[in-house]
Write a protein that binds this DNA or RNA. Structure first.
Lengths: 265, 265
DNA sequence: TTCGACCGTATCGTATGGCGATACGGCCAA
DNA sequence: TTGGCCGTATCGCCATACGATACGGTCGAA
């Protein structure tokens, strides 16, 4: 998503050792992204950009392997997807070192704490520690958001060279998530500039209504942003000033504790 | 893992429309399961049962697609794995209907609540709602445990015909997870029988020390178990009797509320 | 320093594995 | 019934991936 997505991989387009069979396989798994309901074999093939025969064979094989399952109304991703995500989290050095820090932070602030990772123009939630009385967990681990409209994303953009941040903004899908999402590039740049000054980013109801979120970036040894730590509170309990004063030092300290421990994004 | 894992898929061994290229691709991704550290290309190929050339090509392609990433010491799974797990959770009808029920339950019991799914001889954690003061989240979504030693697994085994449950027990890897794990088949069958009588399963320190867990099975419309709801408490705060009396009715009610809403495992 | 082992990378002729057009039976709605 | 779309199955051809092989770099032990 974040990079090339040529219509037809055409085997070796660009790199001679890129296998089209692998790309086709993964494109079938990716075909579910954003789909509201299970897919038939034909729909799956179409969504993956394959003809019916190829879709049929790949889907059957993936089903036999547990990466696809039949539901009553079509095919859905299979449980094996969870195992692979578990492997990712387990082998990720940053997630590993972040876990105790995040728990500590969560204990201090008593609000929801998230760790997100930068991936191209987007961020992905990698760890979520719920707050005590959270009833909506519409957002889950693995959820992807454009970086411009999430606090964590803006904190990370602020740690990039201005030109690079601008490039990401321009390449992003800037549809608003809530009525209060900032979608205007100069305005976003202003907020990024503010984040650069403060050392953290703050957003009110830009990705979910009723929510105030504060985040700071985690940097690798080259001073490049690789992740962000978020704390989310409810507007029914927090005013902006109080949230800033109480939360920001803790989040920045946690982010600083994790920075430079990580080699490469 | 739960089914066949022939040394060499040999294209069409068994089913004529099974694609070996797909199986090879996924076997590279699966090679990380259980590995303690990043893998070199050669190690990855060996773990996937491929020669160096095939491993090289597949790994490079997967890396280009974001399913593999380079760390300082080798290859690790890539962020895309999280997206696929998110798709699974988002499109899973049971997870969707379970979410509000689990939150309700968590509010009532104020302890950790999990939803696990049955997958062959194992269970997978699909949803986890932490308790207020949980400091260790060693277990994560996507973690797989043998069903015999988890409460949820035993609750589900109790809902299967006895012969089938026995088959799963015999096929399971019955290494103990803690000193208190029950690994003796007759003893496990006894606990399953108890679960069948009570309508829920209970285990004390069988999968983690200091933990008492109670679980009830969720059944599909054919009365077959597809999932389980767990509540986990700390032994420093709960005695067995109190835990049973306080927690079991709530867990059973939540499991009943979800049962029969789901078509097929 | 000099090996040797192992790393990642790259090349290339070959044969095999998957391509995709095609066909069939079942089901549902018109 | 008819027509559409479903999932399934077949089959000959050729493009695709195979895998043996080779090369330069790096690291540790000799």
């Amino acid at each position: 998503m974040s990079t090339a997505k040529g219509r037809k991989p055409a085997a070796g387009e660009g790199n001679p050792l890129l296998l089209q069979s692998v790309a086709r396989t993964m494109s079938v798994l990716e075909a579910f992204a954003g789909q509201p309901r299970p897919l038939s074999i034909a729909e799956l093939a179409a969504a993956a950009g394959l003809d019916k025969s190829a879709g049929q064979r790949i889907a059957h094989t993936l089903q036999a392997l547990g990466y696809l399952e039949r539901s009553s109304v079509g095919l859905v991703p299979g449980k094996k997807a969870l195992y692979r995500a578990f492997d990712f989290l387990r082998m990720n050095a940053l997630v590993e070192s972040a876990t105790p820090v995040l728990h500590e932070l969560r204990k201090s602030v008593n609000e929801r704490v998230d760790l997100s990772l930068l991936d191209g123009t987007d961020i992905v939630y990698a760890v979520r520690l719920q707050s005590k009385r959270e009833t909506f967990s519409a957002t889950l681990v693995g959820r992807r958001l454009p970086s411009f409209c999430s606090t964590g994303g803006r904190a990370m953009l602020a740690a990039l060279p201005e030109a690079e941040a601008l490039g990401i903004l321009e390449a992003s899908d800037r549809r608003p998530l809530t009525p209060r999402t900032t979608t205007d590039i100069p305005a976003i740049l202003g907020k990024i500039e503010e984040a650069r000054r403060c050392g953290y980013a703050l957003a009110i109801e830009e990705s979910a209504l009723g929510e105030i979120v504060l985040a700071a970036a985690v940097l690798d040894i080259h001073q490049r942003p690789v992740a962000a730590i978020h704390v989310a509170g409810s507007l029914s309990e927090w005013a902006e000033d109080g949230f800033r004063q109480r939360i920001s030092p803790l989040v920045m300290e946690a982010a600083r504790a994790l920075s430079h421990t990580y080699k490469r994004g």
